[in-house]
């Protein structure tokens, strides 16, 4: 039987906490940037103007159809050659995960907007609201309620995706784990701890999503 010994992991708790902090911060940043960009792309993909639709849909599909790891590496190693400017690993990670997340967010947002009964828009038009007012007062408030659970799901995936940045030697939770395991020769304990830390953050979030889904599921 293997003898578990977590005491050697405890010694490195500061490193792990640093890694965890970076993981959470990066996740928050890519969620916020991804949602903003995703909203813009969703509105663009629903635009009446062909040019807006073309740009938005190209961006969405470009990142939906490339593995995130490939995008990450491309942004770090290839993009600098193209634009002639060095990009830090952190910047490459932020850009690629944000854009990757944005394409999934925008599909959720687009579907949410399109899922609203067309009669709602017509009722808004019939009382003389402008298109922007209809979006803001009628469509979005209803669509948002339906979109929140899938948006949260995508954010959970986003947080998990940040673990890929360790390939660019960004000191996130997983990368710190690797360093510690190299030093204390206790990979089983170290990686178990790393996994449990991810779980501890995400489990409450998935429970919240479940709760929200059941609450809205009953209503309509």
């Amino acid at each position: 039987m293997y003898e578990w010994d977590f005491s050697s992991v405890w010694e490195y708790r500061d490193l792990l906490l640093n890694g965890l902090g970076l993981t959470v911060m990066l996740a928050v940043a890519v969620v916020i940037a991804g949602m903003i960009l995703g909203t813009i792309n969703a509105i663009g993909s629903l635009s009446r103007h062909f040019a807006f639709r073309a740009i938005s849909i190209s961006m969405i599909e470009l990142f939906r159809c490339t593995p995130l790891l490939v995008a990450l590496i491309w942004f770090y190693y290839a993009l600098p050659i193209l634009i002639g400017v060095e990009i830090s690993a952190m910047m490459a990670a932020f850009l690629s995960i944000s854009l990757y997340g944005a394409s999934f967010y925008s599909e959720i947002i687009r579907a949410g907007i399109q899922g609203i009964d067309p009669g709602q828009r017509e009722a808004g038009e019939a009382i003389g609201l402008m298109p922007g007012q209809i979006l803001h007062r009628v469509i979005l408030p209803q669509a948002l309620r339906k979109m929140i659970p899938p948006l949260m799901n995508q954010s959970i995936i986003n947080l998990k995706n940040t673990s890929l940045v360790s390939v660019l030697a960004i000191p996130d939770l997983l990368y710190q784990g690797k360093l510690i395991a190299h030093e204390n020769f206790r990979p089983l304990e170290v990686y178990t701890t790393v996994a449990l830390l991810y779980f501890a953050i995400l489990f409450p979030l998935t429970m919240l999503v479940r709760h929200l889904e059941s609450k809205h599921g009953v209503k309509h």
Partner: peptide
Amino acid sequence: RQKTGMVFQHFNLFPH
């Protein structure tokens, strides 16, 4: 449209 009121078969009230 502000000056033409419309009532629909399926009401189309704003549920929120």
